[in-house]
Design a protein around this nucleic acid. Structure first.
Length: 214
DNA sequence: ATAATGATTGGC
DNA sequence: CCAATCATTATT
């Protein structure tokens, strides 16, 4: 069993940094979810930032404040979770001070703890580390929430303590961070090409091969 | 009340 | 390439 996850939670103040700084700082950190079934956790290897109200790709473009997007207007370090395409949840880390709706979408994790639990939730067989089955556990925004058992009930929760928290990992040197356009926002016009997707260069668990810049 | 659509995934 | 599947949102 998982007695305790050995990585300590990040401090609440960690989230009080500009969104672009946090985009780099979050890579290499861990996402941990504690449930009655056990602990599952993964290392963040890919993410995207959304900066409303000026970002056409963001749910908060134009300052749209609805029940769904409310968390994005709240204080940093909380979970913004939304249901998409009738079947998947996406997990975001709210950033920027209250009133400024910015967030970072977590797009892919490298499995670290609770592999069997993650595989069971995904309906997959447990694979060896490095195998295709292993990579497939959390290499996408919908896959990672499914693997960690994250749903709407965690909407708005703080991310510095259980049951859902970010835990200290090894920061990724800027030189190892690749950037490119965000995925699946063809309607976003000029914002479509902003290089606001960040991932760890050459990491096998990123959601899709690079169309990289830098 | 109704219609359109999506920060995805998996299968053909 | 395209269907699955439904909450959210805007519109009537």
């Amino acid at each position: 069993m998982n007695a305790e996850f050995s990585y300590p939670p990040l401090a609440p103040e960690f989230f009080c940094q500009p969104t672009d700084v946090l985009a780099y700082a979050l890579l290499g950190q861990h996402v941990v979810h504690v449930t009655a079934s056990g602990i599952s956790a993964g290392r963040i290897v890919e993410l995207e930032m959304y900066r409303g109200p000026d970002d056409r790709g963001a749910h908060t473009f134009g300052g749209r404040r609805t029940p769904r997007t409310a968390a994005m207007f709240g204080p940093p370090g909380h979970a913004y979770i939304y249901f998409i395409y009738g079947m998947y949840y996406c997990l975001n880390v709210v950033t920027a001070p209250s009133g400024i709706p910015e967030a970072i979408l977590l797009r892919a994790l490298e499995p670290v703890t609770g592999i069997e639990l993650m595989a069971a939730r995904r309906g997959l067989a447990v694979g060896e580390p490095g195998s295709p089955a292993y990579r497939n556990l959390a290499n996408g925004p919908g896959k990672l929430t499914q693997a960690l058992g994250i749903g709407q009930s965690l909407y708005g929760v703080p991310l510095w303590r259980p049951p859902l928290y970010l835990a200290k990992g090894v920061p990724v040197p800027t030189a190892q961070v690749a950037r490119g356009p965000r995925i699946n926002i063809p309607y976003a016009q000029e914002a479509r090409d902003y290089p606001w997707r960040f991932w760890i260069q050459d990491n096998p668990c990123v959601s899709r091969p690079p169309g990289a810049l830098r």
